[in-house]
Design a protein around this nucleic acid. Structure first.
Lengths: 116, 116
DNA sequence: CAGAGACATAGACATACGTAAATATATACA
DNA sequence: TGTATATATTTACGTATGTCTATGTCTCTG
């Protein structure tokens, strides 16, 4: 039994840069799923709010107040980001904290911008 | 009258990296539009096919054959990428060539992965 | 154990999206 | 001028998406 915290596999985990060689069908599926999750203004701001926080994590309670949207709507968007593999989720007492998976963001960045 | 070829403004043209500071509402709007355009497997492969080509451009005739989709569907996706500002379009005789705007891809990459 | 607060889930609704078939436009060439 | 070829536009249709209201679940505290 390893004592190290379980390190989830990246939802992308592949692929040379876009401009270097044509994406495979499966690589495109995986990358597009991430891009689609980020392709909504609210989710992108949520991602940014979490990622730019000290420690790369934020409580839902803080996030709700940053938008003029209902709490369930924010919850829904966080779920989309979480299921895409872009946010980690941890419950601490009554509060839920989301943490940005910056490795995934970096992989994605390398994929779309990795060439010269 | 300038003789240099018109250099279009980037559709993003802004914003510190996601993880560095919270995106503004407008910055998120612009970036999300690009991400959304890329957030479809077919469009992402199209983008990759064009960008990875020698010279960074490809003829529609080549692109159509790479998918088992109707010609109008490919045309539609190319239009989406073009209108998002990710592909330039040039007609040469009977053929139409699309060219990848790699500066835009790079800006986007810097936005989502720009931090450490 | 009851009540309150934090967050998630379910259901409903209007709008947007991906796709295809049919049609239009434009260019080349006989 | 007429026909063939390359690409775009239009229309239509089923499905997915973003949002809300209402409700459920979990956790702390009195």
């Amino acid at each position: 039994m390893s004592l190290a915290p379980a390190k989830q596999a990246s939802p992308l985990g592949c692929c040379a840069p876009l401009s270097r060689e044509p994406l495979t069908e499966e690589g495109a599926e995986r990358a597009a799923a991430l891009l689609k999750a980020l392709g909504d203004p609210v989710r992108l701001r949520l991602m940014s709010l979490v990622a730019s926080r000290d420690g790369g994590e934020a409580c839902v309670c803080d996030l709700n107040d940053a938008f003029e949207l209902s709490q369930p709507t924010i919850s829904h968007h966080l779920k989309v980001l979480h299921e895409a593999g872009l946010l980690d989720r941890e419950k601490r007492g009554v509060w839920v904290y989301y943490r940005a998976r910056t490795e995934v963001l970096n992989e994605l960045a390398a994929l779309i911008g990795g060439a010269a």
